[in-house]
């Protein structure tokens, strides 16, 4: 599951960075790989693609800085939503 999520996230981010496909720990916002407007696009894409609600308290850029950060965020929200 994690591999599938990572592949999907890597592919989406890779389509939007200006300097080639980034490593999974590459901070795309600190390095100018993307414009700031991509942050909003990424949040909305995560909601739409993985069917999870991004709440106001989730709107911390630390959840979206790298491929790995996004993957961890998606997994945590899916785990929280899963039936016990």
């Amino acid at each position: 599951m994690t591999d599938d999520i990572a592949k999907t996230v890597r592919s989406f981010i890779g389509e939007h960075v200006q300097d080639g496909e980034p490593g999974d720990d590459h901070d795309i916002f600190a390095t100018g790989s993307v414009s700031s407007l991509f942050a909003v696009q990424l949040v909305m894409w995560v909601e739409r693609t993985f069917g999870i609600a991004v709440h106001p308290t989730d709107l911390d850029i630390e959840n979206f800085r790298t491929v790995n950060h996004v993957v961890r965020f998606v997994e945590s929200r899916r785990a929280a939503a899963a039936p016990a």
């Binding site: 700031s36 949040v43 850029i61």
Partner: peptide
């Protein structure tokens, strides 16, 4: 792009 500009400014501080 107003909504996206405001949102990205806040999200990225």
């Amino acid at each position: 792009a107003t909504a996206a500009q405001v949102s990205s400014q806040r999200l990225l501080e």
